[in-house]
């Protein structure tokens, strides 16, 4: 018997605090698998800002820094500038990156900081109980858009990947999902590409990963995945938005 699937070394054995069916867990594992496969566990420094995934520092078995809400790309810039030979990634939610942290992510990309951002988009603020985020869909109910997001009042969702793809310093931007095993494989490939481009010193890379929030969406984990496919993907189309090698998916 040979083992074909087990917990990656870069992931601690600590049971996560995430809600049942929350896909943060899958995404953490993919990042850890990529770190293992690239053999960089001892070279990697991660940054986890405020959000459900702030406690990622208990789950990634690498040097970590906890950052203020929205400021992970700046913290990561400080780290990478001191240790240009290390692998530096931020793991951020949409409330963190697309709201309070927009300046930091835009300028990290503009400076082409050689860091990788794992951007988890679940169209809500999970940790604080399901408030509306900049990525909340029009019509989507949240605790701060109780009658559904009304574009006349609260505007429209921000497509971060498309936005960042216009920035020259961004060398790889992809939006992926983890709603079934095939997409999980694609997501891992994108994350690996992003890390590889960082290690090759090419510049700023970001992978946006559509993710579920069963608890705050009010769905079972399986129905949440279904809601993601039916509602989020049309607004947030999957695919590579920016890459150096043309035609490389």
């Amino acid at each position: 018997m040979i083992t074909v699937f087990e917990r990656p070394k870069a992931l601690t054995a600590v049971k996560t605090h995430y809600c049942p069916g929350c896909t943060h867990g899958i995404i953490h594992r993919l990042v850890a698998e990529v770190i293992d496969e690239l053999g960089v566990q001892e070279e990697t420094i991660g940054v986890s800002p405020v959000g459900c995934a702030v406690l990622a520092y208990n789950y990634f078995d690498v040097d970590m820094q906890e950052a203020a809400h929205g400021r992970a790309p700046a913290v990561a810039t400080g780290i990478k500038r001191v240790h240009p030979d290390k692998v530096v990634f931020t793991y951020q939610g949409d409330g963190d990156l697309a709201s309070i942290g927009t300046a930091e992510i835009v300028h990290a990309a503009a400076r082409s900081e050689k860091i990788t951002t794992i951007f988890v988009n679940n169209a809500t603020y999970g940790m604080t109980g399901g408030q509306m985020a900049p990525t909340t869909l029009v019509g989507q109910v949240s605790t701060t858009s109780p009658r559904g997001r009304d574009s006349a009042i609260q505007g429209y969702p921000i497509r971060v990947s498309e936005m960042l793809a216009t920035i020259e310093g961004a060398v790889y931007i992809a939006r992926v999902s983890v709603h079934n095993p095939q997409e999980v494989a694609k997501a891992k490939k994108a994350i690996k590409t992003a890390f590889e481009l960082q290690i090759a010193g090419r510049g700023f890379t970001l992978v946006e990963i559509l993710s579920t929030c069963p608890t705050n969406w009010g769905y079972s984990p399986k129905d949440a995945l279904k809601w993601l496919v039916d509602n989020m993907i049309p607004i947030y189309p999957l695919g590579v938005k920016k890459t150096l090698e043309e035609g490389k998916s």
Binding site: I45, Q65, A74, V75, T77, G78, R81, V82, H83, A103
Partner: peptide, 24 residues
């Protein structure tokens, strides 16, 4: 050394946080 003008004072102090946390 490294000189970097950040996009804001908020970003700058958080870069300091990252660099200080990295031992510099």
């Amino acid at each position: 050394g490294v000189f970097l003008q950040a996009e804001s004072e908020i970003a700058a102090i958080n870069m300091v946080y990252g660099a200080a946390g990295s031992g510099a």
